[in-house]
Amino acid sequence: MNVSVSAPNSATIAASAVQLARGRKPHRLTAGRIGLYAFLITAAIFFLLPAYVMLMTSLKPMDEIRDGAIFAFPRTLTFEAWWAAWSSACTGLNCNGISVGFWNSIKILVPSVFFSIAAGALNGYAMSFWRVKGANLLFAALLFGAFIPYQVFMYPLVIMSATLGVYNSIAGIVIVHTIFGMPLMTLLFRNYYAGLPIELFKAARIDGAGFWRIFFWVMLPTSTPIIIVAVILQVTGIWNDFMLGLIFAGRENQPMTVQLNNIVNSVTGERVYNLNMAATILTAAVPLLCYFLSGRWFVRGIAAGAIKG
């Protein structure tokens, strides 16, 4: 077919094509669309690159790392750094690996998550359904507290916990996590319970249930979604904590983040980058696992934590 491509001719063709238009609109890849994907992919590279480099470094022997190609695949794949990081990395003179910090973190995490959520659920329940004097004031003030930098409370809390004899102990750090977790957890549960129909509570009251019975038999069983959100928030939050663990847990009970920082940042002699990166990955593993497994719940947690009121 011999079609000339002079301007008027192609215009007529285009016009008649429009009159013949039928069915699905032809999908054209526009410049905007290409730009959009280019932006997304560039951003994805920016976000992924550090994780990639971290992983590659952890799998290389030190000889290769000294060559300086951080983006390159390992020529000799080795898990030695991982094993060393886990079982024999040194913090000062102790060379028992970051596994020590891992178990410390677990010991801190479990009771802290439990107590902070229990406190938040109870507070949220009492504030939402019961006529308690000053509950609104209490709530507002707790919220305020949630936003104030820990540095402001730090020193007096150290003295208080020392007076109570829990400074430098697991109990001490658990108490501190519970105290600082309480506002957000209370907010979470209060908002959740405020969204429940008040009739649920009234019906239980009419059935003769009391404060605790309603809490344990009516409210907690309906709270599964918010408990999941709370667990995700607290597990990642407490695992990732550094400052409180550093100050309150004591040398024997240093959580993983603190130990990791010591391993990497307070060494003498040559830095073992592969071991450092392996230790870093190990430290990030728990919250990352939590993130990848929980999927949309993590996003819900962020939204709830950002106080959508």
């Binding site: 429009v18 009159q19 013949l20 238009a21 039928r22 699905r24 609109k25 032809p26």
Partner: peptide, 14 residues
């Protein structure tokens, strides 16, 4: 997916 839409005697499908 298929078909045509005409408005005021113009094919507006696309």
């Amino acid at each position: 997916v298929d078909g045509e839409v005409w408005i005021s005697d113009k094919n507006v499908t696309w």
